[in-house]
Write a protein that binds this DNA or RNA. Structure first.
Lengths: 152, 152
DNA sequence: ACCTTTCCTATCGATTCGATAGTAATTAAA
DNA sequence: TTTAATTACTATCGAATCGATAGGAAAGGT
């Protein structure tokens, strides 16, 4: 009971968003090998190959098997939000069960805390859906420029 | 790898906020027994007695030992936010290490995802600090009124 | 002394988490 | 038609975390 580091995002989600961001940088080209993504994003390829399953079955990416296979975004980067990705990887963004499922707790009609968790969950959803893969790609480009400049 | 229910608040946090909200309803009176809080809020007293330690060492509540002991809020309900409580129970509200601790990842200067996690964390913090225990107490009163009316 | 309450530490079983391993299926190219 | 490369699937591992319980020590009112 002494751990002091909660409220952390799972690595599953972190890696998943990193991968999608990587795919956004190669949108509209040939499919990308998982091997290359894993290397660029510095993630275990095996582990990423599990994460990718959820992204595909959520319809966010398309896959091609066999030699010269790989992955591509299923939609344009502007049409994929971070919320889409997190929902594919973590399920519904709902901080407590009783918000989306009132029958799960008998105290719903009394409990004053339930309201906050609902509000907070909605705000988180709004923030997440306001960021697209296109945004990520553009900040990546900006960061790259800055790095070049600071190296001069 | 098939679980589909992430992004959940820990019961530790849920119970902690419930307890603080209960204490807010009895502010300015004698200390409250943990036993009574546990009964009213429908939580294991033993479990709550662990959670309470973090709340006290964060300076959110004062305790009195011995017979007729118990707990009281350390400040007025208007002066305690939900953020205060969650930080006491879960530690810093920081979704990924690299945000508060840039040295923890070598990709900080390249990674475009880090920025979002920073923004999201800040928005969560804002939302949490905008709700005080006084707000919780007032919604509780409102809910109680509504329940009476709907029972007529 | 005695009872009640908070305080502290240890521990439990179950679940989740991050990660690895091995193999089957599919496809392009030689 | 063989070969090499790649995704797809399933099983499993060790460690960490989670929710919860247990038992007693310390403190204080009566």
């Amino acid at each position: 009971m002494f751990k002091e580091q909660g409220m952390k995002l799972s690595t599953r989600s972190r890696y998943g968003v990193r991968m999608m961001s990587d795919l956004a940088d190669h949108y509209d080209l040939v499919p990308i090998f998982l091997k290359d993504i894993a290397k660029r994003e510095d993630v275990s390829e095996k582990y990423l190959s599990l994460i990718v399953i959820s992204l595909r079955s959520a319809g966010l990416i398309n896959s091609t098997r066999g030699a010269h296979g790989g992955y591509k975004l299923a939609r344009r980067p502007e049409e994929i939000t971070v919320k889409d990705i997190l929902e594919a990887l973590e399920g519904d963004i709902c901080l407590v069960d009783c918000v989306s499922n009132p029958e799960s707790c008998s105290r719903v009609s009394i409990c004053p805390t339930r309201d906050i968790w609902g509000i907070l969950g909605r705000k988180i959803g709004e923030t997440l859906s306001s960021v697209t893969l296109a945004d990520l790609a553009s900040t990546r480009r900006k960061k790259a420029e800055n790095n070049i400049r600071s190296n001069i």
